[in-house]
């Protein structure tokens, strides 16, 4: 696994007097196995930061470097291939496909990469077991609780053995008990597999469990605790 570096990233929308600076000169670096919590109020640029790291948005300035190689100057096709291979994404809304079972939602990831192998099936089974979802593997999202759905979403993000986990408010729709459960599982996976993880959250208690934190206000890095 490799180090993730975010160097002087800015993202501007519009020009001149109407220009909006969604992100302004944001930098940080993460060692493998580190979890970074990104805090900040709504509109502070947290999601824009995640989208840029995932290759869903191009930065106006700055660069993203993984293991010494820049990863931000990619075409949409290359960025999609990069996400399939190296990125695990967890959305605030779980975005599980409603017509697929929990197991099939996990197998969607290797399916998008080409084909599903026996190894993929074994991995899906083992991840579901690790997340306590073995009994729920054949259930569709509508038949799962909120916590179970979010655990399936995290397990899906781990299917491609990613180097970077990008997690957007993973516990926002969960009660404290289920939220802690999901975060604990996530932390365990990050440390065990030496991934780098950027987690956006509003919840300072969640942020306290991260290895590092970054606060954004109006797109700029603010001192932690501001």
């Amino acid at each position: 696994m490799r180090m993730l570096e975010v160097r002087n990233i800015s993202k501007h929308y519009g020009h001149g007097r109407t220009a909006v600076r969604a992100l302004d000169d944001v930098s940080f670096s993460l060692e493998p196995g580190q979890l970074l919590a990104v805090l900040g109020p709504s509109g502070s640029g947290k999601t824009t930061l995640l989208s840029i790291i995932a290759g869903l948005l191009h930065p106006t300035e700055g660069e993203i470097v993984l293991g010494g190689r820049p990863i931000h100057l990619r075409s949409p096709r290359e960025a999609a291939a990069f996400r399939r291979r190296y990125v695990g994404l967890v959305f605030q809304e779980h975005h599980l496909l409603p017509y697929l079972t929990a197991r099939e939602n996990l197998l969607l990831v290797p399916h998008l990469s080409g084909r599903i192998t026996g190894r993929d099936r074994t991995r899906a089974k083992s991840l579901l077991a690790e997340f306590g979802l073995e009994e729920r593997a054949g259930h569709r999202p509508a038949m799962l609780s909120g916590g179970e759905r979010q655990r399936v979403a995290v397990a899906r993000a781990l299917m491609n053995e990613p180097e970077i986990m990008l997690v957007d408010e993973p516990t926002a729709n969960l009660d404290t008990q289920h939220g802690n459960q999901v975060l604990e599982l996530l932390r365990a996976q990050i440390h065990a597999r030496a991934m780098t993880c950027v987690m956006v959250t509003h919840d300072t208690r969640m942020a306290e469990q991260a290895d590092a934190s970054l606060r954004l206000i109006d797109g700029r890095t603010a001192p932690t605790g501001a």
Partner: peptide, 8 residues
């Protein structure tokens, strides 16, 4: 979401 996961 599927595009974000890498679907073309």
């Amino acid at each position: 979401a599927v595009k974000a996961l890498g679907a073309s």
